[in-house]
Design a protein around this nucleic acid. Structure first.
Lengths: 108, 108
DNA sequence: TTGACAAGATACCTTAAGGTTTCCTATTAA
DNA sequence: TTAATAGGAAACCTTAAGGTATCTTGTCAA
């Protein structure tokens, strides 16, 4: 029971799976075709991604389709964004520009 | 020998250490004061952060001062940014705005 | 209506991760 | 010049992580 997004993303295989699912809905056997490891190994990685909510699955007959549900990755994005100004010193200025622009827009 | 930024950041203790060093240069004993674990345990975490380049150290007498070197976190930032549009649908528009603005600026 | 395919489940193995205790060495303050 | 402090280093322990092999069950096509 991991449930931790950071831990889920720590593994390179899982990052690759996330990449694969970014644009396609795939079956387990499709995914495991990309990797040099057994299907149950990939299934375990996939399960971890499902447990953290990064991947969602739907069953269709004997197949299980997996698709990306990227929202939980926002946690990571939020955390790391606290440090962006370290390598992007113009970021403060940028933020000002964006904020100003958003204020101009009508409330939908 | 980890050297992997994603793995380094996967551990919550190490994320906290990164947070502590974001604004202060601290000694090991300062840092370990924040945690409910032994000093050598914290030292190991710190070593992993040093190995990935996220933390830099300088020796001053009998003290070793650690400070954040956030640049390696950019790797994570870059990776996760590929998925930002999943939770921020306005991001494409935003990118356009920013690009346009940057083009206006003089080359330094 | 049987054979092949998709994938869940279980048992097991090996190594890496995260911790502890204990000891040692260098530096500084009294 | 000795006692306290900072922290490196080694040995060890336990559990979690990442894999494998193997078996079973459900579904579909021939």
């Amino acid at each position: 029971m991991t449930l931790d997004v950071f831990r889920a993303v720590a593994d390179p295989t899982r990052r690759e799976i996330i990449g694969l699912l970014a644009h396609n809905e795939l079956r387990l056997s499709d995914i495991s075709g990309y990797f040099d490891m057994t299907r149950p190994a990939v299934a375990k990685h996939l399960k971890i991604l499902v447990d953290t909510g990064i991947v969602r699955q739907r069953v269709q007959g004997r197949e299980t389709l997996s698709r990306l549900e990227a929202a939980p990755l926002k946690q990571m994005s939020d955390w790391v964004s606290r440090f962006e100004h370290f390598w992007e010193p113009r970021l403060d200025a940028l933020k000002t520009i964006v904020d100003a622009d958003f204020e101009q827009e009508p409330k939908s």
